[in-house]
Amino acid sequence: MKSSFLRRLINAPYLLWSAIFIIVPLVIVAYYALTDESGNYTLSYILNIGEYKEVFIRSLVYAVIATLITLVMSYPVAYYMSRSKVSTQKIMMLLVMLPMWMNLLIRTYSWTTILEKTGLINSFLGFFGVEPLKLIGTPGAVILGMVYNYIPYMILPIYTVMTKIDNSLLEAAEDLGSNGWSKLKRVILPLSLPGVISGITMVFVPSVSTFYISQKLGGAQTLMIGDIIQKRFDALSYNTGAALSLIMMVVILISLAIMNRFTDDDDGGIIL
């Protein structure tokens, strides 16, 4: 009796904390999204979202492209890592994690030095008489920034799952006549799927909602939904800002739900 009471008590601080600081804030977001400035119920902010259709589509498209590029880049690296010597694995792991300790803003900002019209790439091309390319201020630059900043979140979960793939499974596949491609398709890929899914989630969510990367690397026409939300809140338009946040949250939840159909992850679901 006593111990079960204690057991309940031990959860109390956290339950209280998550109720006040996780649940209630979301309710308040919904409240602001569904009321006007004087607190009356209205759907107009939600219904007006059509005005931002292009921005939403742009954010989703950029994030999907960035996620796919990240996946394609990460997969061979994660595979190579997981099949290396343990000491090499450790070093590579360290090298993947290290940039994450640096500030995201400063790393993104460094890209401007590389991509600007008089930046490193264009100066280099200039030696060969190539006209300066427009690199900064393009959708490509924004996507590059996303890929760059979030790629460790893709490598690490895939790598973690791949280290668990037993080498004897791969040998068995070879013994049974699998060549490189079918081994990849029929053994490695299915077994690494949970890692891929969590990698996709961890790259897609921050990409779709970013507001610094697009401001630094983007141009006049690469505004993302995160930028608009930031601007709305800076301008004290809490209601529009909350409506946009709410809709973004719903869009992300739907995307995640669709993605999670492909995996049967248990409640542990965290990588690292």
């Binding site: 959860n11 339950l15 998550s18 006040i20 600081f21 996780i22 649940i23 209630v24 804030p25 979301l26 308040i28 977001v29 602001y32 989630t201 969510v205 921050p206 779709v208 909602s209 507001f211 995160g226 939300i229 930031q230 809140f233 809490y238 800002g241 909350a242 946040s245 973004m248 949250m249 992300i252 939840l253 995640l256 409640d267 679901g269 965290i270």
Partner: peptide
């Protein structure tokens, strides 16, 4: 258990912007 795990996952799954904005609105409120 699964209810509390779902709540726990919210700040991780939610975009930072939404978490930040929702906390700010809480404090405003």
């Amino acid at each position: 258990k699964s209810a509390i795990m779902t709540v726990t996952n919210i700040p991780m799954m939610n975009p930072d912007v939404v978490t930040g904005v929702s906390m700010m609105l809480l404090f405003v409120f």
